[in-house]
């Protein structure tokens, strides 16, 4: 699987990652090399395998104290009146 610069740009968009053009080019060639190695999975024989995994147990849905809001505020880049602040998203 060859990843070209345009495909890398598409994936970067999905992943919300900013790259400059030279980094994007390098990323595309590194991804191509790694995916080349991963091609070996096509040859694996998986015909006899049954799913054997236990489902993750769910815990009871009970209320418990939440994180202290003051501690949340300390780590937030921008926080006012109990809210995280972001730039205006609607005109």
């Amino acid at each position: 699987m060859k990843i070209d610069r345009e495909e890398a740009r598409r994936i970067a968009g999905l992943a919300h990652l900013e790259f400059d053009e030279p980094s994007l080019e390098q990323m595309a060639s590194e991804m191509t090399a790694i995916l080349g190695y991963i091609e070996m999975l096509r040859d694996a024989d998986v015909t006899e395998t049954a799913a054997d995994r236990e489902p993750t147990p769910l815990r009871d849905d009970v209320t418990r104290p939440s994180t202290d809001r003051a501690l949340v505020e300390k780590n937030a880049p921008s926080f006012e009146n109990g809210f995280f602040v972001v730039p205006k998203v609607i005109e």
Binding site: I11, A15, L17, E18
Partner: peptide, 22 residues
């Protein structure tokens, strides 16, 4: 989103996010 992650993550983390997203 784009700039904070672009500046905050190093190259190996970005490479893995890209491969995983793909």
């Amino acid at each position: 989103y784009f700039d904070s992650r672009g500046e905050g993550f190093g190259p190996e983390v970005k490479r893995r996010i890209m491969l995983g997203t793909f």
